[in-house]
Nucleic acid binder design. Structure first.
Lengths: 355, 355
DNA sequence: GTGAAAGCGCTAACAG
DNA sequence: CTGTTAGCGCTTTCAC
């Protein structure tokens, strides 16, 4: 035998180890147990056909050897699949990170709902301009359906996918002539609630922060207008700012609003993140919330109550959202036809809106 | 699992539609193109053997029919797999949600790193007491390796998995006699930096919030003690609170600290979430930050700069973290042997710690 | 350049 | 109750 070489460099680990680490398979268990693979298969799948003694013997063996049935092969054979894809589009220009806490939370709730039903979750980030990648996940059989978080502006692409029979459900607002299924909160009601609350607290010049090109925001805006109308407050377009949902959105919107030199004493921001960055900007400029500007956000993220001042906001039902999205995509995958789902929305009053 | 107040009512559609929707497969394309499946396979895989004309014809056909190769079957045949599992343990007792923004962000950075390398990400939440479920994901062949976010107290279980040759990398702190690979930030340095900063700003009675049973926190605590020692400030155990990383953690710790009637003028909280809830609690009790209590958090989540006061904190390198975790798990899956990875940590001074 | 045939790891008739 | 056999959708020698 060759004697081991003395070297100072790290011992190059056995490069074969990956391949030599031959994965155990059913045939191995069968041989070791002295039965056929059919028997092992049946035993491990708890078929009632198998002798109790045989079964437990095989189970023991498998467990002690750390063997588990290969799901890939099983799925192929069974033509089944218990994986759902969750797609989070990102904006290729801003390379925006998965940053809004609300989206992250909804992701958690989907994960829970999926786990509860015994499904795996494939999480994918795709370029918002290439939503077709989401369809590929389905067409390649990696998932039986997809949940898309963030409707954004991609109505047409989504419609196309649905038309091609991709089981897809999107978190967002219901739109006319929409072929795909949406699950979302009642944004019109949410917008109304927030605005009405501000109105009821004697605010008359209420700014609106949100990109109304997004369907969800458009609905909230509609609620905003409806409230103004109902309380007979004139609508002033100079109070409307197309703030994007990024961290800088609130800051930029505040700057623009102030530059417009329009008077305002209230703000309805279409996300808590937006509300928080706005409040932070106001403060830098000597404007205090709620005294000078009463603010209501949207989402009710966890940090909202620990913010200063604690943020009044419109709560979207997180757990229900996950449940509904998962139910919907599963139903769709089974070929059912579904109506859109509208979840209730709730005003949470804290201190950013009342003195 | 709470049930949602809204149920998805399915219009009972044609129940056969799911099954009759026969998925296209390679044989279909072959028949339609008048070639054999071998040819289709080669064409779609861009084999140089195929006639250019034939290839493009087949590609066209496949595209127009929305056909894509079935990855499951392909993987089986090729004995390959491009999926990595990301496991987020949850505490079964508190049923704690995936709530800390930092964990969520790291998840995003992992997703990006995986996507960049052409890997799929399987996201799974598992009961912290049943970490073995993470091993199953590997043993069943659903993923070639697993990234575990949150070392918590499960050192032993993790060691067992590693001993069984499950390619697993853990986000957390390096521990003695650890068989598994960790990637984490330099927690000792982070703790030192935060504490030193407070010390340099004339704070002498610095409270520490964090569950020192967690390896990462233990390291930060070590940094805290090191700083005190270096600046010759006596260590006082009454200033140390085992705050958990939940939203209520900060609040409870503040209550307990106040109940102890010990004097303090600074706080190093082991997460931004903890710092924020603590500041919020202080405020409720008339204590203002930074005047009365200077606070430094940990993580540098996005909202930290928009908090009031903007939060001083120790930044953990998010993007690098995702990259490192992914590189590590991929290397492990190939059978390589790796050392733990320690990422640099950086103090970000804002206003919660300086007057 | 293209096709026929074998087989990836598993399950399910169909026999015994 | 258990084994034999065929085949899930794909890739790849091996022939032509």
């Amino acid at each position: 035998m060759s004697k081991s070489p003395v070297s100072v460099v790290a011992v190059p680990s056995n490069p074969v180890s990956a391949s030599e680490q031959k994965r155990l398979q059913m045939a191995d268990i069968a041989r070791l147990a002295g039965v056929s693979t059919s028997t092992v298969s049946r035993a491990l799948n708890k078929s009632p056909l198998i002798n109790e003694e045989t079964r437990s013997r095989i189970e023991q063996l498998a467990k002690s050897l750390n063997y588990s049935i290969n799901v890939g092969a099983q799925n192929l054979r069974l033509k089944q699949n218990r994986t759902v894809a969750v797609v989070v589009p990102f904006d290729s220009t801003s390379r925006q990170h998965l940053s809004d806490p609300f989206f992250l939370s909804i992701l958690g709730s989907i994960a829970d709902a999926l786990t509860a039903r015994g499904f795996d979750m494939l999480l994918t980030r795709v370029d918002a301009e290439e939503l077709d990648a989401a369809a590929q996940i389905f067409h390649t059989g990696r998932a039986i359906g997809v949940i898309l978080i963030g409707q954004w502006r991609h109505h047409d692409q989504l419609n196309q996918m649905a038309a091609r029979r991709v089981p897809i459900v999107v978190w967002g607002a219901q739109i006319q002539q929409q072929l795909y299924v949406t699950v979302g909160s009642d944004n019109v009601a949410g917008g109304f609630l927030a605005t009405e609350h501000l109105l009821l607290n004697q605010r008359r010049r209420i700014a609106f922060f949100g990109d109304t090109q997004l369907p969800e925001v458009a609905d909230r805006f509609q609620g905003y207008q409806k409230a103004l109308q109902q309380y007979q407050i004139p609508f002033d377009p100079t109070l409307v700012l197309p703030a994007v949902f990024t961290e800088e959105g609130g800051r930029a919107a505040v700057a623009e609003l102030l530059a417009r030199q329009t008077r305002f004493d209230g703000l309805f921001a279409c996300s808590d993140l937006l509300a928080m960055t706005a409040i932070s900007s106001f403060r830098e400029r000597g404007l205090v919330t709620p005294q000078d500007i009463a603010v209501v956000g949207y989402d009710d993220i966890e940090l909202a109550r620990y913010f200063h001042p604690p943020l009044s906001t419109v709560r979207q039902p997180l757990v229900a959202a996950g449940e509904a999205l998962v139910s919907a995509v599963l139903a769709l995958a089974e070929g059912q036809v579904l109506p859109p789902v509208l979840l209730p929305t709730e005003l949470v009053v804290r201190h950013s809106s009342v003195m």
